[in-house]
Design a protein around this nucleic acid. Structure first.
Lengths: 337, 337
DNA sequence: GAAATCAATGCAATCGATTGAAATTTATTT
DNA sequence: AAATAAATTTCAATCGATTGCATTGATTTC
């Protein structure tokens, strides 16, 4: 790599000390106008750029945010990254991305990478496999601010940003009931994830409100296209199949529609389907999918803003009070209901 | 932030010099086994982690790769990031992501950010707006290795990784013709992008091969869902509409299918559609979309590997010979043809 | 027993920029 | 002209780790 121009180069050429050059460049009042002008001119001429690494070392800060995320290749998460990058960019921070690929082991390595890279703060949505949170605990012990988004834990002293999963699930199921469904299945996420629990709970309470019996047999663990497709096939072939489906994400919902079509059932006539996410695909499926918009972009923005606030504040650990921010969700009604 | 344990802390506690501690930690033969053991034990006990920033300064390297990309929120690009992160991870590099949001202005700022962050190398897919490449030229002049992927320029001395756009377009259109289409429209990308040109050229040559007249009137600039939907509506309402469509990406292709359905036309009976990308959505549309898989994940991997190779080699600028790697594409036949 | 050898450790400079304190130069006052 | 004040500039330490070159002390050799 070509050697970059340093402050020393400028100092030598002008017969000054590095201190003077440094101060001249940042308009320190001690420096005479003449010297200042000379320094700035030469700096511009040589294309001087301050060495960020040196500043990082001195300030013990990198103006970098670490992002630990399950899978980039997933609309919801890429929308979140988009929101994060937007805010980071505006505040002159950079974003380092680490994928866990839904693997606990890799996630632990990611937290180490985040430590060695000395990022100023970390944004985390943990993997489906994660049940032990001590690797995040370690980040916090190192006094690196951590903000969890979407997938969060209450047991750690860290901020959280989540969609209003309970409310989203509730309005989704409520909508199904109002559209005439009485036997509603729920395709759920793993129950170690809070989103799994909250959405199940919203589903449960919406049924309750309308005096519909909550049937354990109608709740399935199916949060991917493949598992949902298989599960939907199984259920729809049984006698007395559900007339409504509330899926924990759009992929599962679209899989249900697909399975229904393959079995010669019509959506929304024979069964209605609601998803959760409002991904690009939701608007493209046939029929178009009714779904709960969880505003990934906003969620990413909020999470990043919250982290930046912590970085400014520098709250000492003993005074730390975690904040939980909930992003309202919104039902987007399309033709699958 | 909590002060991290440094080599000096260890040195003081053991009554040694920092040099000895440093050498002990890296198993330098000069250090006696006793001292080495003591140092390592204390280091482990205190949870010592070498300060990467200090090493960055000393080695003038950050083990970080900069990624400048139009939009994360797009299946193809997120697949590419996935591939890049995969390779970077395996080689102990980190990835910094900068979005241009298809804006030339922002892209220029991104190249500056990449410079101030002192990344070791840069991966670039430039924006649709970009016609002036001097900001990338500046990176190269600073002897920062640059690899372009997907959207590339020949005028700069930099490596390239691209999908075989010509071949992909050719087999796609050839497929349409073999399926009986004779009047085939092309929804193209802007012609300042090489992918736009190459795919148009593949389309052209496939027609030629089958002695089908190339009609300028059948080529449209429409590379987003919205523009494609509008264009498709217009064309399909005219007399003698096309019986086949080759779209430059899946979103446009799906928009065409949608427009056709809205006009009461059947796919693939009345018209056949082929996309380009093989996104998640392609498998979900109804009918499922025939498309050209451009292997985004592989493309990202290859681009990253190529960059890492350059970082190892350190070829001096005057000996630099750009390499162009072409990833073969593959037709995925589904029910839209 | 003095010189040579070798193992083990320490010193000090380096990477680039910053900054409190000291030193120098210049201007002002008496 | 001397004394003081004010304006500039430099010195040197710092951030954390590394490394060529001493230095120390012990052992070996003739």
């Amino acid at each position: 790599m070509k050697r970059q121009i340093t402050i020393k180069d400028i100092a030598v050429k002008l017969g000054l000390s590095t201190s003077t050059v440094s101060r001249a460049l940042k308009d320190h009042p001690d420096i005479s106008p003449k010297t200042r002008a000379a320094v700035k001119e030469l700096a511009a001429l040589l294309g001087y750029r301050p060495n960020r690494i040196a500043l990082n070392l001195r300030n013990n800060s990198t103006r970098t945010i670490g992002l630990i995320i399950p899978e980039i290749e997933h609309y919801f998460f890429s929308a979140i990254i988009n929101g994060i990058e937007e805010i980071a960019y505006k505040n002159d921070y950079s974003v380092m991305v680490f994928q866990s690929n839904e693997s606990y082991k890799r996630e632990v390595i990611n937290t180490q990478a985040v430590l060695t890279n000395r990022v100023d703060g970390v944004l985390v949505s943990f993997s489906k496999e994660t049940n032990d949170f001590s690797h995040f605990q370690k980040l916090i012990e190192n006094e690196i601010p951590v903000v969890f988004f979407d997938r969060v834990v209450d047991s750690l002293p860290a901020d959280q940003v989540v969609a209003d999963d309970y409310q989203g699930a509730f309005i989704a199921v409520n909508h199904l009931i109002e559209k005439g469904c009485r036997r509603i299945a729920h395709f759920a996420a793993p129950q170690n994830l809070q989103i799994g629990k909250s959405r199940l709970s919203g589903y449960h309470d919406a049924l309750l409100k309308h005096n519909i019996h909550f049937d354990h047999e109608l709740v399935f663990l199916a949060d991917t296209y493949e598992t949902a497709k298989k599960a939907a096939h199984d259920i729809l072939r049984k006698p007395n199949p559900p007339d409504g489906f509330f899926a924990v994400n759009d992929m599962s919902a679209i899989a249900i529609i697909k399975a229904a079509k393959e079995l010669g059932k019509r959506v929304p006539e024979d069964l209605k389907v609601v998803g959760f996410e409002n991904s690009k695909s939701a608007g493209l499926s046939d029929p178009e999918l009714t779904t709960v918009d969880q505003f990934g972009f906003e969620l990413g923005r909020e999470a990043c803003l919250m982290l930046l606030k912590r970085l400014k504040e520098q709250t000492p650990a003993e005074l730390f009070k975690p904040i939980r921010k909930v992003i309202k969700t919104k039902l987007v009604v399309r033709s699958s209901t």
